[in-house]
């Protein structure tokens, strides 16, 4: 049984008829697996994870056929019960480390807070453990950093602290929401390496939300491509990269600058993700899809198994290679 099982997850902001921001999403993650979620801004990647964490407030509405983590139905939990899981068994690392830490408290305090909350560690024991965690995330001079305030740390250092905070509760699932987007390129690689090492060492599942397809190719085993709140293709890593079946996956890969070497301009997919009020009647990609046909505009495809992956398209690409 998978660690995380999401079936038909919908997140709406407003009443039950509002256009869903996450639209019938199915996703599963096994224990100890790295799953990458890619897609352009506004495709619902972060919102999905926020829904899982219980971080969506009114007027946000979450419905799902199942949202099960480690055998627990997350939708049925009371706030108090959910807070026993969130921050402990599921933890999250956010995009901008410079704003994700509370400026008024020391690094040590913010890590110890998790230890106190979830592991019941107090005083010296908590401090000792916080120090170990800082060393674990390879912060130099960890001892002196315990009493540092976030503004005294660099971006990369802050992200390490945020990771230390996230792994403090020994999570079974770590969600990293664009953990390197706000960092310098040189630091990005270090942070990714740290995350992957921690994942291996603790055999925890890692959901990596990212724009960076190169990172996906290097780290993840499976990848889920999202577009306008829907999963459009879910597949194994080398296959999805080599022979993408969904036109959107293909376009994403074509947009990597290295793939346009020698060309006059970078490859792009014209248009933008449809907003809440201009959803097409048919396939959500139909206004932008280079392969669009008449029935694409009239009906929405389902996420169906194809040769190598699950694909939400009437006319999946690259099927003959099979």
């Amino acid at each position: 049984m998978s660690l995380l099982q999401i079936n038909n997850l919908n997140v709406r902001f407003g009443d039950a008829n509002a256009v869903p921001v996450v639209d019938g999403l199915d996703l599963s993650v096994d224990a100890g697996e790295i799953l990458a979620i890619v897609g352009e801004s506004g495709s619902g990647k972060s919102v999905t994870m926020m829904a899982l964490m219980g971080l969506i407030d009114a007027p946000g509405r979450i419905t799902a056929d199942s949202l099960t983590f480690d055998g627990i139905d997350m939708l049925k939990l009371s706030g108090r019960q959910r807070r026993k899981v969130v921050g402990k068994d599921i933890a999250m690392v956010f995009q901008d480390p410079m704003t994700a830490l509370n400026p008024s408290y020391t690094v040590g305090y913010q890590i110890e807070e998790v230890l106190r909350q979830h592991l019941g560690l107090k005083g010296k024991a908590a401090r000792q453990r916080a120090l170990e965690l800082l060393k674990k995330v390879e912060i130099p001079a960890a001892e002196s950093r315990l009493d540092a305030y976030p503004h005294q740390l660099s971006g990369g250092m802050s992200q390490r602290v945020a990771i230390a905070m996230a792994i403090a509760g020994e999570p079974k699932l770590l969600i990293a929401d664009e953990p390197t987007t706000a960092l310098d390129v040189t630091i990005q690689a270090q942070i990714m390496e740290l995350l992957v090492n921690l994942q291996k060492e603790r055999n925890m599942a890692l959901i990596l939300i990212t724009h960076d397809l190169a990172v996906v190719a290097e780290t993840a085993r499976r990848v889920c491509v999202m577009y306008a709140g829907q999963a459009v293709e879910v597949g194994q890593v080398p296959e999805l990269f080599d022979i993408p079946a969904h036109p959107y996956s293909e376009a994403l890969l074509a947009a990597i600058p290295e793939h346009s070497i020698g060309a006059e301009r970078l490859a792009t997919l014209p248009g933008i993700v449809p907003g809440r009020y201009d959803r097409p009647q048919g396939c959500l990609l139909s206004p932008r899809c280079p392969y669009v046909r008449d029935n694409c505009r009239a009906q929405r495809p389902a996420l169906d198994p194809q040769a190598h992956s699950l694909v939400r398209c009437f006319y999946p690409l690259n099927q003959e290679v099979a």
């Binding site: 971080l55 807070r83 969130v86 402990k88 933890a91």
Partner: peptide
């Protein structure tokens, strides 16, 4: 958001 994600009350 970070504080909430920690499971604090």
């Amino acid at each position: 958001r970070t504080a909430r994600a920690k499971g604090l009350s």
